[in-house]
């Protein structure tokens, strides 16, 4: 029971709530083929929006959804800088992320807001927390899978694959990229709003490293479970996120300091990125025997 309460439940909760963020990041990664650093800013934007609204007495559901919209607005700015001003997407996202730091402080009015004493969407009961995050993740996976089967969703996927073809077929690849940045950061903002209510505070620094953590989850998930279809990719992202948080928790138990965790993350990303290469190297002798 100690194991379940102190290890398994927190790992699943964290894996799922950060899994939402990974799903958001997956969208730009798939459509624009670039890791979107905006999320380091928009995670905080979503958290700050929800926290500020909660302190003002706004209903937790409305406050959480508001995090989606402010996150989406942040993403739209990156999308506009990239598509209208022809700035490279990676650079555009760094610019927005930098600017958002000040915006987030303005939203909060100070550098952090504690939520412990307030009524939030996230229940106190650990099983309740898990149920909320699992339901949100399931809903998001469902919505994404439905969306990517529509004409619009298909055009988004095609843009990541071959944007020249998309334009030949009369779809503006710029609009698709703008839409991807917007939706993706909306999801990240929503994730940030939930993370803030889960951890009991919003903080101007909380978004730092979001992109790397999300990439770690995506890369681990894809390396272990594959991502041949939208459905498999979204499930792999969630599983990857849970595994990533598990490794984190294990590292803490093994005696790493919380301040060491960024290094653990960096090492994990390198490891996960090398999995396909390792797989190939290990299989090589069998292949040469067969020949």
């Amino acid at each position: 029971m100690e194991f379940v309460l102190n290890f398994l439940l927190p790992v699943l909760q964290q894996g799922l709530v950060w899994g939402l963020v990974a799903l958001g990041v997956w969208m730009t990664f798939r459509v624009v083929n670039v890791p979107d650093l905006t999320v380091d800013g928009t995670l905080t934007t979503g958290a700050a929006t929800a926290a500020r609204l909660l302190t003002m007495g706004v209903h937790p559901v409305a406050a959480t959804l508001a995090g989606f919209f402010t996150g989406a607005a942040g993403g739209a700015i990156t999308g506009l800088i990239h598509t209208r001003l022809r700035v490279q997407p990676l650079l555009a996202s760094i610019i927005t992320m930098t600017g958002l730091y000040s915006v987030n402080l303005r939203i909060m009015g100070r550098s952090n807001i504690a939520l412990f004493t307030l009524e939030t969407l996230v229940p106190d009961n650990p099983w309740g927390k898990l149920a909320l995050f699992a339901a949100t993740a399931a809903l998001l996976v469902l919505l994404m899978n439905l969306f990517f089967r529509t004409e619009l969703g298909l055009s988004l996927r095609a843009t990541g694959d071959n944007d020249g073809m998309v334009r030949m077929l009369g779809v503006s690849s710029d609009s698709m990229r703008l839409l991807a940045f917007t939706l993706s950061n909306g999801i990240v903002g929503l994730g940030g709003a939930l993370v803030a209510q889960y951890s009991g505070f919003a903080d101007a620094q909380m978004g730092i490293g979001t992109i790397v953590a999300a990439l770690a989850a995506l890369i681990i998930g894809e390396a272990l479970f594959g991502a041949p279809t939208v459905f498999r990719a979204t499930i792999s992202a969630l599983l990857g996120s849970i595994i990533y948080r598990t490794i984190f928790a294990l590292a803490l138990r093994a005696g790493f300091q919380a301040s060491d965790l960024k290094l653990v993350t960096a090492a994990l990303v390198v490891l996960a990125l090398s999995i396909p290469h390792i797989k190939r190297t290990v299989r090589l002798p069998e292949g040469s025997e067969a020949r």
């Binding site: 969306f147 089967r149 529509t150 004409e151 969703g153 298909l154 779809v171």
Partner: peptide, 10 residues
């Protein structure tokens, strides 16, 4: 081609 892409099933 030539139509706006909406939320119809592809």
């Amino acid at each position: 081609r030539g139509r706006s892409r909406g939320l119809r099933w592809a």
